[in-house]
Amino acid sequence: MTGGPPLIVTRPEPGNAATAGRARAMGFEVHAMPLFAAHPLDWRAPAAEDFDALLLTSAFAARLAGPQIARLQALPVHAVGEATARAAETAGLRVTMRGAAGAQQLLDAMASRNIRSILWLCGRERTGFDARGAAITPLPCYAVDPVPPPAAWAGLIAAPAVLLAHSARAAERMSDLVGAARAHLSLAAISPAAAAAAGEGWRDVAVAERPDDVAILAQARALWHKGAK
């Protein structure tokens, strides 16, 4: 694709490189601009027999959990998104349900199966959910912290571009960083929550149909075509 705005990928590594690679294969002019970095936290796994299932809403939980995650291998894993499911399997866990439409929909499905006691291996910062009567125990095993924008950031957002928001937290930070420049910038958001966190005033906003790279890049391509006109 030529003649349209560049694509700015803001998610932390290793996801940034994976998304950038997919985008380049689609023909985008891609700029990797991570605005966060993930790191593990110290934690200790509880007794697996105290829970019915393990909930994972991010691949970081499986990637950064470290050796303690082996103590939870007996629990069936319910994972949000294919990337999270793959990371869980790589860590030696058994994935029994993949949620393609977000954490709340996955919890609804778990409730329909009468899964009552859930261990949620999560990040330090996290969004709450309606547990549908289940007991959810959040256990942070990683954190994602802001990092200064790369040196090229200011020049890139000074002209039309398409930005990717892979989380509500990322969308909120991008909103703060771009300020009034949003009037000539377009945003592809991973979810309605991410789009809402970005606020108003953007040139265009599109929301992925599913919380994964394929869906968000499809929306980025639609925004690119609008920007190329």
Rank of each mutant, 00 (worst) to 15 (best):
G81E: 08
A91H: 02
A109Q: 15
L72H: 04
R22K: 13
D204E: 14
L223T: 00
P67T: 04
P14A: 13
A25W: 04
G201F: 07
Y142E: 03
A91Q: 00
M97Y: 04
A87K: 00
H31S: 08
P160N: 02
R210L: 08
I118N: 08
A25Y: 05
P148N: 13
Q219K: 14
A48P: 10
A23L: 01
T57E: 08
A59I: 00
A170T: 15
A88R: 01
G21W: 08
G199K: 05
F36V: 09
D130Y: 06
P34D: 13
L106P: 11
Q219P: 02
A88F: 04
C141E: 00
T19K: 05
A109E: 15
L217R: 03
R132S: 11
L139R: 02
P211I: 01
A188W: 01
H225I: 00
V205I: 15
G3P: 03
V207G: 06
A218Q: 12
R182M: 05
W43Q: 02
L163W: 07
G102F: 10
A17C: 09
M97D: 12
T96D: 11
A32R: 13
I118M: 08
G4T: 01
T84P: 04
A215L: 06
H39L: 09
N114R: 15
D42H: 09
S175D: 12
V205R: 12
A159K: 15
D176R: 15
D212A: 07
A198L: 03
A23T: 03
L93V: 01
R94G: 06
H184A: 05
A45T: 02
R94K: 14
Q68R: 12
R11T: 09
R132F: 12
A23F: 05
L35G: 07
S167V: 00
M174E: 11
E172Q: 14
A171M: 05
A48F: 07
R44G: 12
H39Y: 08
M33E: 13
P150A: 11
A61S: 15
A154F: 08
L177E: 06
A228W: 02
T127N: 12
I8F: 09
